[in-house]
């Protein structure tokens, strides 16, 4: 590290929490009824992050491939849950969760391991100080791509049922009949990362880079890391979304080239 790292004290956090009290006060004064949710959310942030801070501290001290792997698995499984949690249409029988989780394990795993062994190269390569934050950033973004891609495909296939079945009835394969909608779902899934890369530095200063700069890292070094991360995220999101969309397309058709919307259910909880 080249710059000065300014350590935060609990007093500093307490001062920041005054802003929260202000927001709560506004909610009461304007009768918005948000003070309770606001309080609970703020408490969750504090508790969750404190716990993860302690967990990371222990994991970083252990530097064990097994504990690191276990932490990674838990992260992926939670990400899989998040993908399907808010889908309005989802695959029956846990298929949505399985497809999302598998896609993210494969995509996140490939890219994280590739980055650790070629670009970042910590010693050992599975050092949790590098592996877990990297994987976390991959998953946070891939989750959006996978979720949007699957949701879009489910919705489009349902909406375009008549057009798709017209093609199938004329002897087109499921591959041909689904192609435009698979393409549309992929576009939707990749749009957020393309936007993020286009806006990076002009409209937004990415959070990781900002964090590094605040922690005293030289901005030009922080930028290099951020570019690496952006590329890794784009790679992971593409692989993950493609896998998830293609697997969903397969699940919503069968070996006799039929459209199987009966494998879809309303998912609004």
């Amino acid at each position: 590290m080249t710059g000065v790292y300014l350590q935060l004290g609990y007093i500093d956090l307490a001062i920041a929490s005054v802003l929260l009290l202000l927001a709560g006060g506004l909610s009461v004064a304007m009768n918005l009824g948000l003070e309770k949710s606001l309080g609970i959310a703020a408490l969750r942030t504090a508790v969750q992050l404190t716990i993860i801070g302690m967990v990371l501290k222990i994991l970083f001290a252990l530097v064990s491939p097994w504990w690191t792997g276990l932490a990674a698995l838990v992260m992926v499984m939670l990400a899989g849950y998040e993908v399907t949690a808010r889908q309005t249409l989802k695959l029956k029988g846990g298929w949505g969760y399985s497809i999302a989780t598998t896609s993210m394990i494969v995509a996140g795993g490939i890219v994280t391991i590739l980055a650790l062994t070629t670009a970042v190269r910590p010693e050992p390569w599975y050092d949790p100080r590098f592996a877990l934050p990297l994987l976390g950033m991959m998953l946070g973004n891939t989750l959006t791509g996978v979720s949007v891609g699957m949701e879009r495909l489910n919705a489009t296939l349902k909406r375009e049922k008549i057009a798709i079945e017209a093609r199938l009835a004329l002897g087109h394969t499921r591959r041909d009949a689904f192609r435009p909608y698979v393409r549309e779902a992929m576009r939707a899934g990749l749009m957020p990362i393309i936007n993020a890369m286009s806006a990076a530095g002009i409209i937004s200063l990415p959070g990781m880079m900002t964090g590094q700069i605040l922690a005293g890292v030289d901005p030009t070094e922080a930028v290099k890391y951020q570019i690496l991360i952006m590329f890794l995220i784009a790679g992971t999101t593409s692989i993950g979304a493609l896998m998830a969309v293609l697997a969903t397309a397969r699940r919503l058709s069968d070996e006799r080239d039929r459209l199987r919307l009966d494998r879809l259910k309303d998912g609004a909880r």
Binding site: E160, I162, A163, I164, E165, A166, R167, L168, A169, L170, G171, H172, T173, A177, P180, D257
Partner: peptide
């Protein structure tokens, strides 16, 4: 697909893509 090219179903409401 080969079967459906020979045994062709035309629905009451045709689809267009």
């Amino acid at each position: 697909p080969a079967w459906r090219k020979r045994v062709m179903y035309v629905p009451a409401h045709a689809g267009w893509w």
